[in-house]
């Protein structure tokens, strides 16, 4: 399932995770989000950027409970909880946000 951006084809796997992490851009993130039925706003960008930083530092996309714990630590409990995160990303904060962030499927997600 590939994405279209500025007339270019961006390759992705059958679940919608992009194949080459270097293809990612903010514009592409908007395209992927739209495909997921999500409108990007500041709150969602905050999580997506957090995931990209996490990947930069540790070379993995964190599992959902790890993500929520890490968000809680850096952004506080009002954001680092299941309810807030699932409101932003209804189909799973780790899975959906990772897809939008251009990262591989989180390790430890089945």
């Amino acid at each position: 399932m590939n994405y279209q951006l500025d007339g270019q084809e961006v390759p992705a796997d059958e679940e919608g995770y992009i194949t080459n992490l270097s293809d990612w851009s903010k514009d592409l993130a908007e395209v992927i989000a739209k495909e997921e039925g999500i409108e990007m706003d500041d709150e969602r960008w905050e999580v997506v950027n957090f995931l990209r930083d996490y990947y930069d530092e540790y070379q993995i996309a964190p599992a959902v409970r790890v993500l929520i714990k890490a968000i809680k630590k850096t952004m506080g409990p009002e954001k680092g909880n299941n309810k807030y995160m699932y409101e932003l990303f209804p189909y799973g904060p780790a899975k959906q946000a990772c897809k939008i962030a251009g990262l591989p499927k989180p390790t430890g997600c089945v």
Binding site: Y58, Q59, I60, P62, A63, V66
Partner: peptide, 10 residues
């Protein structure tokens, strides 16, 4: 190798 530093989160 950086992933070992994430193990604490897990």
């Amino acid at each position: 190798s950086p992933t070992f530093r994430a193990l604490g989160d897990y």
